[in-house]
Amino acid sequence: MQFTMRRLFGADNNLLQLALLTLMIFALMTALAPDKFLRPYNLLSITYVAPELGLLSIAMMVTMLSGGIDLSVIGIANLSGILAGIFYHAYAGARGPELTAMAPLSVLGGILIALATGVLGGAINGVLIARLRITPILATIGSGQIFTGAALVLTGGPAIVGYPDGWGFIGNGAVFGIAMPLLVFLLLAGFVALLLTRTAFGINLALIGTNPKAAVFAGLRLVRTVFFSYVLSGTLASVAGVILSGRTNAAKSDYGVSYLLQAVLIAVLGGSNPAGGRGSVAGIIMALLALMLLSSGMQLLRFSNFMVDLVWGAFLLASIALNALRTRVR
């Protein structure tokens, strides 16, 4: 009992720190570029750009819970958008009103194809990791190459441009003034949060990450639970792919490559332990907010994207150092 109390407290502590960090970044950016940073347009644009990265980070966190990692999320996201795009173009031509004003039911067909890609991609990872017992790093490096490679083979290199308006609505639309991607993200984030904290699946997953051997001896179905965690992460990645291609009206085999490191960073910064056992959706959302404010502020201050990479890397190392020092003190 005391142990769980302490863990709860520790998690809250982490959230508190993150909130503080977010506030500090917000204050810093406001001070450095008050006229640009606080403009509604800037804050609004974050609600469109952040969700895809947020979904990838949640996907990463889910696999980290069991002590694994999913390095194929970008590959799955791009392949999902590309397969749906190929379906639309085969169905209604590469451009023209027939494509843009497609009937909702046909648009839904493409969305289902994208989601099925995520489920299947995740299932492949699940089989490789849970059944064949390949190390998650290598299994998802390999499968990620295959997904990205398949996307490259299917498109031949250039981007697939032009999606139905209904598909674009998911990435660009707004309902009651709230960005559609944000709504999708909040819905899925809430779903995953419930799944992780209120169901046997979520509890088991964290237990497996804490101590796989004990979990097996306690009679948990390790193979099944780990398998489904990768299916979940693949599916989340494919939703991110839908939003990404909906927002940009295009899909390409090498879009969003820098998202991979950022997703790992947000997961670690958000309190996930890559060795397994710890991680929460609330932490991810907080870390996502902090880093989106940071990178949007840096872009407004005209830093190059490379500088943003530099700062993200430094953040990752700093957060590792902080976490390590904190646990050592304890």
Binding site: L261, V264, L265, V268, P274, F303, S304, N305, F306, M307, V308, D309, L310, V311, W312, G313, A314, L316, L317, I320
Partner: peptide, 16 residues
Amino acid sequence: IVTLGTGSLVRGFLLG
């Protein structure tokens, strides 16, 4: 995780 971070840091420094 460490090497992902240092790699990104070094590349960002070099290009940025």
